[in-house]
Simulated assay, not measured.
Amino acid sequence: MSESTEIQDPSVPRKALRTVTPGSKTRPDMEMDSIGWAVFLGLVVLLVPLLPFIAIVWGLSKVLEFLARQRGA
């Protein structure tokens, strides 16, 4: 884009716009970090015992797909 096109285009601001709210300072959010870890550990506790059942269902579906392809061919 040339400089003259940018000046004519009203959708492109020429300088940064000020906002009503003050800028925020970045800081570590330990509260949300601990909540995230708690959710992750809760999912691990729930899903690890279910892994054998998930593997069995997945294996059966693959075997049934294979048998259906053999019957159709």
Results as ranks from 00 to 15, higher is better:
V20N: 08
M32L: 11
G23Q: 12
D33Y: 07
M32S: 14
P22L: 04
D9L: 01
F40A: 05
D29G: 07
I35K: 01
F40E: 04
D29C: 03
G36Q: 15
D9Y: 01
E31Q: 10
V20P: 00
M30L: 13
V20R: 01
D9F: 01
R27G: 05
V39D: 11
L41E: 10
T21N: 09
R27C: 06
P10S: 00
E31P: 00
G36M: 13
D29I: 11
G23I: 05
T26F: 13
T19Y: 04
L17I: 11
V20C: 01
D29R: 10
P22D: 10
R27N: 12
R14H: 11
T19N: 05
W37G: 02
L41H: 04
W37F: 06
D29W: 06
T19F: 09
R27W: 10
P22M: 08
K15A: 13
M30R: 15
V20Y: 07
G36V: 04
V39N: 07
L17C: 11
L41F: 13
P28V: 15
M32K: 13
D9P: 00
D33Q: 07
T19I: 09
Q8I: 05
R14N: 14
K15S: 14
D33R: 07
T19D: 00
V12H: 03
V39Y: 06
R18I: 08
E31S: 08
R18K: 15
G42V: 08
S34D: 03
L17F: 13
M30G: 10
E31A: 12
P10L: 00
L17V: 15
A38E: 12
F40D: 06
S24W: 00
I35Y: 04
S11F: 12
G42S: 09
Q8N: 07
S34A: 10
P13R: 11
P22G: 09
D9Q: 02
G23Y: 10
L43Q: 01
D9V: 01
L41R: 07
P28Y: 15
K25M: 02
L43P: 00
G36I: 08
K25I: 02
R14G: 11
L17G: 12
V20L: 04
P10F: 00
Q8F: 07
R27K: 14
G36S: 13
A16W: 12
A16E: 14
T26E: 07
I35M: 03
P13K: 13
V39K: 03
A16K: 09
S11P: 06
R18T: 11
L41C: 09
A38K: 06
P13C: 13
S24L: 03
K25A: 00
T19W: 05
L43K: 01
W37D: 00
R18Y: 09
V39H: 06
K15T: 15
I35W: 03
T21G: 03
S11N: 12
G42E: 03
P22T: 05
E31C: 03
M30I: 10
K15M: 14
L43H: 01
G23L: 14
G23W: 07
W37P: 00
